[in-house]
């Protein structure tokens, strides 16, 4: 499933984020996101605003558009 389809507080494993815009992909990698790493969707902001993720103790915010391009497997 897609990262954007998770509900609040769902924990999932990232399986593929190669479709995301290259700049965002680079930043995600720099922030420690990689294949098979665990992320938790904290919440989505209203009106299709960005979503907040938690991964190994840090909080990252990402647009829903980008979250729609990240494949995850729900735990």
């Amino acid at each position: 499933m897609l990262l954007s389809e998770l509900s609040n507080n769902d924990i999932a494993r990232v399986t593929d984020f190669s479709k995301v815009h290259i700049v965002i992909q680079k930043r995600l990698r720099q922030l420690g996101i990689k294949q098979d790493c665990e992320v938790c969707l904290i919440r989505k902001l209203p009106f299709g605003g960005p979503c907040m993720l938690e991964s190994s103790g840090q909080c990252i915010s990402l647009r829903l558009d980008e979250a729609r391009l990240i494949e995850v497997q729900k735990k």
């Binding site: 815009h21 700049v23 965002i24 930043r27 995600l28 922030l31 960005p50 907040m52 840090q58 909080c59 990252i60 915010s61 990402l62 647009r63 980008e66």
Partner: peptide, 11 residues
């Protein structure tokens, strides 16, 4: 040109 957004949220 598309705008992009990614932000780290510090404690």
């Amino acid at each position: 040109q598309k705008s992009l957004f990614i932000m780290e949220l510090p404690p």
